[in-house]
Design a protein around this nucleic acid. Structure first.
Lengths: 343, 343
DNA sequence: CTGAAAGCGCTTACAG
DNA sequence: CTGAAAGCGCTTACAG
């Protein structure tokens, strides 16, 4: 922030873009009667020169900046933990957070209008949590000079948009290895939809651990559904009905694991004596189950803080460490895992 | 939002104050070469006409308004649920939420500076959740023309600042009456600090139910501490060590109740067969305990939505329904309550 | 779709 | 300390 660097005027932008001041003004105010080529030239000039409209210049020599945060599914503890990390980071970085719940109708037109509105309001920093945006939609923000960082464990990374997530594969492997090392040989997996990126990684980590420790993979021991307790309850019922049922299950998230624990209780099956259960996420609920749940903790707050720091770096034109950051997970052993009976 | 009400210009302010435009400009930009009498006249005209400088006006012909939200203790599920309600409301009302975590050092000087910053940024609507602000600090916002609504179950209402909360007394009475109607005669209360307003109300509801149903109050059956699981665990150990221990407890919140349930499990006491437990709040954790917790649900989301609506009404100068709104609680019976053994 | 011209709201520089 | 005059940065209305 070299505060007193001579203020850039619209006239300078117009000159650089090779257009008149009124035309530049039209682009800035988001009017539509401008040729696409012209609009792009002006937008580039705005970026190059770092122009900010009078409204974007905050009085009192730059007040606290705003960072927009859009969270889909603020219902989940996952999203709330990431949000807490972002808010912690905002306090540390002296910025403020504008939070919106994801509106369900994120059509291309809406995204376009929204991006325009953000730019108009001088809001050029955006963190999207589990947004399921298309690459085209993300490009709209770039065109509007808005820096975007994704926290989206559900989707593959997009080119040119930094993402922050956790080491899902390594976490899945660690969870499964823990069960195998306890002596389990029949270990099930109950997860979310296979197509969801983080589920795929966790499931692949499960497989890798089996292979590494020389345990045969049995496709019957894998159930996928959604990341909710019902999937856990249904899944464990199915697995326990097998001729050779598992003595342990690794669950794709904590919600599934709580469903498993509750269903086991209903069936009179003791956890961990008869069945070991490992969850994933390390959300606060793991402390509320009986027994408390062994789980792979994601560094959710750190993910939030990192996403915030990254979007600020992008916005200031600073180099960022990596396009795709994976923060380390951590297996926390609690009371829901034990050696199999008879060992 | 009578949005298009003609924008007030500095010329109008100058005219009303009986000075020239340049002089009015000087006052607004805080320059000192203006007579005190003149300055006061201009400031009065600014207030009377509701003038806002270009910086204070938000671009885009009033774009979505911002509402500031400050939450102390975003750790708690309580705060998160209220926040969800506020965000739902913001979506419905087409406003956006700027969220800050309560900084611990809310000294008078900081509040003063903060209020000034909000006004400068054109942010004139504030919802404070469990803020513990003093009446003097709240007055600072009023002086700065900022509308404030409190969601603060911990403190007594302040004069002239609308508050939204729930019917804590009625909820405490309903919880206790439920236990008495099941046939319990030794019913304990484990709560937070007595001085905390909502605890006081819940505890008073407990007492009222005992009196109404003709059950003697025994001061030994009441334990107060903090709203956390440790208080529940310690409390139930103390109560069960009494010569004539309770067969049921009403807990001041769900966190205390989970501590009770876990401690009972550790002591080999069956809930609900040996001990009935009722919580308060109805946060999602009540579904994760085994057994699931009977609890008095607070309408937390509705509290959030109502607080948001109220601050918008205040800001628009519309009449509000009541200074102090209490929204109804609702006893939800789950699996942690049953008639006492032997009935 | 573009830009010369007019205009708006505010600030600055300066004469009194 | 005040305000007429000049000026700045931007937007609006409109001719081409």
């Amino acid at each position: 922030m070299n505060g007193s660097a001579k203020r850039i005027t619209l006239a300078q932008v117009a000159q650089r873009a090779g257009v008149s001041v009124p035309t530049a003004s039209k682009v800035l105010s988001g009017r539509t009667d401008v040729a696409d080529r012209t609009r792009l030239r002006v937008q580039k000039a705005v970026q190059d020169l770092g122009y900010r409209s009078p409204h974007e210049r905050r009085p009192g020599g730059d007040g606290p900046a705003l960072v927009d945060l859009v969270i889909a599914g603020l219902e989940s503890e996952y999203a709330v933990e990431v949000m807490r990390g972002i808010i912690d980071g905002a306090t540390a970085e002296q910025v403020e957070i504008v939070i919106s719940s994801m509106t369900p109708d994120m059509s291309d037109a809406n995204v376009e209008e929204w991006a325009g509105r953000l730019r108009q309001g001088g809001r050029r920093r955006l963190v999207l949590v589990t947004s399921d945006m298309s690459t085209e939609q993300l490009a709209v923000f770039r065109v509007n000079g808005i820096s975007v960082v994704l926290v989206d464990p559900r989707s593959k990374p997009h080119d040119g948009v930094p993402t922050v997530c956790s080491t899902d594969w390594a976490g899945g492997r660690a969870a499964t290895a823990h069960l195998l090392e306890l002596g389990h040989r029949r270990v099930g997996y109950i997860g979310g939809a296979y197509e969801v990126e983080c589920n795929r990684a966790r499931q692949s980590g499960y497989l890798a651990a089996l292979v590494e420790l020389g345990v045969d993979f049995d496709r019957d021991l894998v159930v996928t559904g959604r990341f909710d307790p019902a999937t856990g309850a249904d899944g464990i019922r199915r697995l326990l009905a097998l001729p050779d049922p598992p003595t342990a299950v690794f669950c794709g998230n904590d919600a599934i694991a709580t469903g498993v624990v509750r269903q086991a209780d209903a069936l009179g099956i003791d956890v961990p004596a008869d069945l070991s259960v490992v969850g994933f996420d390390g959300t606060p609920m793991v402390e509320n189950t009986i027994p408390r749940l062994t789980s792979v903790a994601q560094p959710l707050r750190q993910i939030g803080r990192t996403a915030l720091r990254t979007v600020l770096q992008l916005d200031r034109g600073e180099p960022i460490a990596a396009q795709h950051v994976e923060l380390a997970t951590n297996l926390v052993v609690r009371d829901s895992t034990a050696p199999p009976r008879g060992r």
